[in-house]
C-alpha cells in the first residue's frame, strides 16, 4: 500500500487489523475498523490508533472517538463513489483535526478534490500506485491552480480573490 501526500510518498506506518485479538498481538500504530473502536480505545495501548470507516458512516458514530484517535481512513469502494468526499467535509466540520486519509482505488485526477474536501493523504492499492506513479499525483494536483468554491482548501477562492482585489 502506497500513501501519497501533497509533498510526496510517505511510509504507511499503520497496520490494519480485523479482530479484537489483533489488539494485543500486533505492535505499532493500528488501523482498526470502526466496529473495534471501543475495544481499541479500552486496550489503552501507547501507540497511535486510526479508525477505518465506510463512506456511509454517520459522523455521530465516529465523533465520540475523535480525542482517542489520530487518523481516520475513509474507505472508497471505487474511484467513482464520491460519498467519502462529503464525509471528509463533515468530519472536518465536526472538529476532527487529526490525519484524514482517503483509502481505495482513487485516481490522480482526484487528488486536488480530496485535499480540498479535507483529506491529508491517499492510500492506494499497489496495482493503482504502479500504474499511476506519485509524480503523476503531484502533477495532477497542481494543474488547475484556482477554484471558484469558497470553503474548500486552504487558499482563497476566485470569488474571494476578486473581492480582495476590488478592496485593493
Amino acid at each position: 500500500m502506497t500513501v501519497v501526500t501533497p509533498t510526496g510518498e510517505v511510509p504507511n506506518d499503520y497496520v490494519r487489523i480485523e479482530s479484537a485479538d489483533d489488539l494485543t498481538t500486533v505492535q505499532g500504530p493500528l488501523l482498526a475498523p470502526l466496529a473495534l473502536a471501543g475495544a481499541a480505545v479500552e486496550a489503552r495501548r501507547n501507540d497511535r490508533l486510526g479508525l477505518s470507516v465506510a463512506n456511509d458512516t454517520k459522523v455521530d458514530a465516529i465523533a465520540p472517538f475523535f480525542d482517542a484517535i489520530d487518523l481516520i481512513a475513509v474507505e472508497f469502494p471505487s474511484f467513482s463513489d464520491g460519498r467519502g468526499l462529503s464525509l471528509a467535509k463533515r468530519l472536518r466540520r465536526a472538529g476532527f483535526a487529526g490525519r484524514l486519509r482517503a483509502s481505495g482505488p482513487l485516481i490522480a485526477d482526484q487528488f486536488a478534490e480530496a485535499l480540498a474536501c479535507g483529506f491529508d493523504e491517499i492510500q492506494l492499492p499497489e496495482t493503482m500506485a504502479a500504474r499511476q506513479p506519485v509524480a503523476q499525483w503531484l502533477a495532477a494536483k497542481d494543474i488547475v491552480t484556482e477554484h471558484y468554491q469558497s470553503g474548500y482548501g486552504a487558499d482563497r477562492s476566485i470569488l474571494q480573490k476578486r473581492l480582495a482585489a476590488r478592496k485593493g
Binding site: 464520491g82 478534490e113 471558484y148 468554491q149 470569488l159
Partner: peptide, 13 residues
C-alpha cells in the same frame, strides 16, 4: 456556472 465548475465535493455524484 462558476460555483459548479470543478466543484471538489460534487464531481462524483
Amino acid at each position: 456556472r462558476q460555483w459548479s465548475s470543478l466543484h471538489p465535493e460534487f464531481a462524483w455524484l
